[in-house]
């Protein structure tokens, strides 16, 4: 316990040193972009705002990636059982049920074609689901130029990913050519506080040749081209990205649910905001 804490403090100190953007060692400058350019506060109950969000439906087969490329177990729908706005929060709910040949349903919504931009500060206030096999995520993919560029060349920025059986740990990652899937550039951050019983703010501040990762008021990582494997390229300076929110069930990252996993499970998003 004590050692962990020391490590964490040491790590924060390291980040501070690397960033050298703080006025003094007492205060950490977490973000610098404050001009709000896009947001959804989820104030209107019902389906997500069609001017902001589109759905991805199915198990990935139609997209040519059954199991969404990760052996995931859920079938995404646009049904209110799986995705709705209620009491000022967006709720994405994973349900254990037989549906269209899958054992679970859930939802995945994205801003593709409706809101995309290069660089900026992207953050959301989220309360996570919990339990083995749950895999909630707040992430971004690069524009694929009408399908002419494919993953991982388009780039992927994972602002928050969590394994439901690690209720205090968030993961921030980037994927690109030569550093994707199991070889992504990742930092895991243990808040030593639950992510499933409290809302936390997960964000990145992204600019030329850097992506800063923060949770609440703690900057916990910066990724730059220097962090990439030798011989690989930074793909985050040349295209717009769109936002994705989803709750996956099972798959290579989180593993399958077990008998103790409680369903249904809901990810609640209080707001999502983008600043320049």
């Amino acid at each position: 316990m004590k050692l962990n804490k020391i490590n964490r403090l040491g790590f924060v100190a390291l980040v501070l040193a690397v960033l050298s953007s703080c006025e003094n060692s007492e205060t950490q400058t977490v973000t610098s972009l404050n001009n709000l350019v896009w947001s959804d506060d989820f104030d209107n109950s019902g389906a997500p705002d069609i001017n902001r969000w589109v759905y991805e439906i199915g198990d990935g087969t139609a997209q040519g990636i059954p199991g969404w490329g990760n052996n995931e177990l859920q079938y995404y729908t646009a049904r209110p059982e799986n995705v709705k706005v209620e009491n000022g929060v967006l709720k994405i709910t994973a349900i254990k049920e037989n549906y269209m040949g899958a054992g679970y349903t859930s939802a995945r919504i994205l801003t593709k074609g409706l809101f995309q931009q290069k660089y900026g500060r992207f953050e959301a206030r989220i309360k996570l689901p919990w339990g083995k096999g749950l895999w909630p995520a707040f992430w971004m993919l690069g524009d694929d130029e009408n399908g002419s560029v494919s993953w991982p060349n388009i780039g992927e920025i994972d602002i928050m990913e969590n394994r439901g059986d690690e209720p205090t740990i968030t993961h921030g990652s980037i994927h690109g050519p030569g550093y994707s899937a199991g070889n992504a550039v990742t930092k895991s951050y243990d808040l030593n506080a639950r992510l499933d019983t409290q809302f936390h703010i997960y964000g990145i501040e992204w600019g030329p040749n850097y992506i800063n990762y923060y949770v609440d008021d703690v900057l916990y990582n910066q990724i730059t081209p220097d962090d990439l494997p030798d011989g690989t390229n930074w793909v985050f300076n040349d295209r717009e990205f769109y936002i994705i929110l989803n709750v996956a069930v099972g798959g290579s990252f989180a593993g399958s649910p077990n008998v103790e996993t409680v369903f249904p499970q809901t990810m609640e998003i209080d707001y999502i905001r983008v600043f320049n």
Partner: peptide, 8 residues
């Protein structure tokens, strides 16, 4: 501890 949750 503050991390004991989800009482059932």
């Amino acid at each position: 501890l503050g991390t004991i949750a989800q009482p059932r």
